Amino acid sequence: MNNPTAQKPPKAFDAFLMRIGQINYAWTNTESTLIHLMAGLIPTDTSTATVIHLTLNTTRARLDLVERLAKRQDCPVSKEAVSRIIAICKQMKKLSGLRNRLNHCLYAFDSDGGPVRSIQMRIADRKNSLAFGAETILDKAELAEIDRALGAIQTLNEDVWSVVFDYAMPQ
Score class of each variant (00 low, 15 high):
Leu130His: 11
Asn29Gln: 11
Arg68Phe: 09
Met169Asp: 02
Asn157Glu: 05
Ile35Trp: 01
Tyr107Phe: 15
Pro10Gln: 12
Ala141Asp: 15
Asp14Ser: 15
Phe165Pro: 03
Gly133Leu: 03
Gln7Lys: 08
Asp166Pro: 04
Thr50His: 03
Ser96Val: 05
Ile20Ala: 02
Leu17Gly: 06
Ala12Ser: 15
Ala134Phe: 10
Ala124Asn: 14
Asn57Gly: 06
Asp159Ser: 08
Ile86Trp: 06
Asn57Trp: 07
Ala124Leu: 14
Arg99His: 07
Val163Pro: 00
Val51Ile: 11
Glu142Leu: 05
Ile146Lys: 01
Thr50Gly: 08
Glu142Gln: 11
Lys127Asn: 11
Ala168Val: 07
Lys11His: 09
Asp74Cys: 08
Ser83Met: 14
Ala61His: 14
Leu37Ala: 03
Lys71Tyr: 09
Asn157Phe: 04
Ala26Ser: 14
Asn128Gly: 11
Gln171Asp: 13
Arg99Met: 04
Leu17Phe: 01
Lys94Tyr: 14
Val66Arg: 03
Thr5Cys: 14
Val163Ser: 01
Tyr167Pro: 00
Thr155Lys: 12
Leu54Met: 12
Thr33Tyr: 03
Arg117Lys: 14
Gln7Glu: 15
Val164Ile: 10
Gln7Asp: 12
Glu31Lys: 02
Gly151Asp: 08
Gln22His: 04
Lys94Cys: 10
Ala61Asp: 15
Ser162Trp: 07
Pro10Gly: 08
Pro170Ala: 04
Arg68Gly: 06
Tyr107Glu: 00
Arg126Ala: 12
Gly113His: 06
Met121Leu: 10
Leu54Asn: 14
Val77Cys: 02
Ala152Arg: 01
Arg62Gln: 00
Pro10Val: 08
Lys90Ser: 14
Met18Gly: 08
Phe109Cys: 05
Leu150Lys: 04
Met38Gly: 02
Gln22Leu: 14
Leu41Thr: 06
Thr155Gly: 13
Lys127Leu: 12
Asp147Leu: 11
Thr28Arg: 11
Ala168Phe: 06
Thr46Ser: 10
Ile85Thr: 06
Ile35Val: 12
Ser78Ala: 15
Asp147Met: 00
Lys79Thr: 15
Ala149Trp: 02
Val77Asp: 03
Met18Cys: 13
Arg19Trp: 05
Ile86Arg: 01
Ser162Ala: 02
Ser162Phe: 04
Met18Ile: 11
Lys127Pro: 04
Asn157His: 13
Lys8Pro: 01
Thr33Pro: 01
Leu69Val: 09
Arg19Pro: 03
Ile123Leu: 11
Leu17Glu: 05
Asn103His: 11
Phe16Pro: 02
Cys75Asp: 05
Asn57Pro: 07
Phe165Thr: 11
Pro4Val: 04
Cys75Ala: 13
Ile42Cys: 00
